[in-house]
Design a protein around this nucleic acid. Sequence first.
DNA 1: ACGGAAGCGGAGGATGTGCATCCACTTCGT
DNA 2: ACGAAGTGGATGCACATCCTCCGCTTCCGT
Lengths: 214, 214
Amino acid sequence: MTSPARPLRVDAERNRRRILAAAGELFAERGVDVSMDDIATAAGVGVGTVYRRFPDRDALIEALFEEKLQRIATLAAGALEIEDPWDAFLAFFRAIARMQAEDRGLKQVLLSADRGRDRVAEVRNTIRPVAVRLLERAKAAGALREDLDTFDLPMMHVAVSAVAELTRDVAPAYWERLLAIFLDGLAGSRAGTTPMPAPPLDLEQFTTAMSRRR
Amino acid sequence: MTSPARPLRVDAERNRRRILAAAGELFAERGVDVSMDDIATAAGVGVGTVYRRFPDRDALIEALFEEKLQRIATLAAGALEIEDPWDAFLAFFRAIARMQAEDRGLKQVLLSADRGRDRVAEVRNTIRPVAVRLLERAKAAGALREDLDTFDLPMMHVAVSAVAELTRDVAPAYWERLLAIFLDGLAGSRAGTTPMPAPPLDLEQFTTAMSRRR
DNA sequence: ACGGAAGCGGAGGATGTGCATCCACTTCGT
DNA sequence: ACGAAGTGGATGCACATCCTCCGCTTCCGT
């Protein structure tokens, strides 16, 4: 990747970093569909420069998300280390939810048909067995409802991040409420309710969230 | 609206109906962003004809969704009639979830900034007091968790319908599973779990759902 | 301190998509 | 059978984004 063939000139390297930084931020905030022009502008650079470094839009996306995808895999492995089955499951589920909720671009890449299809599929295959294992352990310990399926997990992540996307500008932590409700729904049984980790929306936040579309 | 000024010629009226039918179907299936050309084709009619009947895209949308919005209001009123507070709440929540899950266009209209903004806001205002009332009743009866807020409900609908959108082509009833988990998370406390109303996805369904984007 | 290689910017060509118009032709109703 | 009402779809227009191209600038080794 960072081919040692010949190091970039210092100004070029500086610009490359700026581009990655700007793109990273824009992708996270506004999704992978931001235009190359916008990225160039945000990086304080001409479009030409962006294209000099990254042959096309997809190359840029791939360069940026490779690391994030890697992180997901690591995360899964890490969760297996945790002793308590329910805690392990929770940690894993929460961590992924957070990543997707806070990074609109990541969420899109994980759902997209073509953007890095192979790479994403690969990551999913790496993760699946771990997820199954975490799931089974938690069920065996009686903490998790028996009828939950592996594929329900990513769908719950989709659900949570859809809400996160809607409320991000107005109440960045709101999605954690939904997550809390979900998690209470996952327990095999429970006496009370887990306290909500975030406050509800007020009328104004709600109205803005429901109508601030692009 | 259906101005009695002069009745349409029979062929014209037939075409008007076809357009509404086609648009209704396309909006529900593929969202409000389908092109006028697509609608015309689906209706077996030229674009010109569509524009003759509906001055522009928005007029068509409005004509179609007015009735649906009305139905939501009716639904809310109906729920108040149900004796048992928890049942009433459930019925209301489920009915709206179903509408949004099964009608991609409706979901978009409810979330959009401009498409019939006023009309939607109006409906929301009609519904809010009813929702609050249903919520309070269910809480008072001890069936519903105390920390739930009115504005959490629409957000849960957003969450469910995001998943419905993803899985609709592959497993149209899947979203009911997520809803079930949510509802179990809403209970104040519970001994076991509510049986899932739909089967989980299998590997193939999951893969297709996660990658069939346009 | 200078010459050439590497890098830069951003106007503009290419492409795509969708809305809405227009008008020669067809169909309906009396 | 004749005029009014209706029709279709090619066409114009507007906009958005990708990516190329090339005259100019900056860096770096000698």
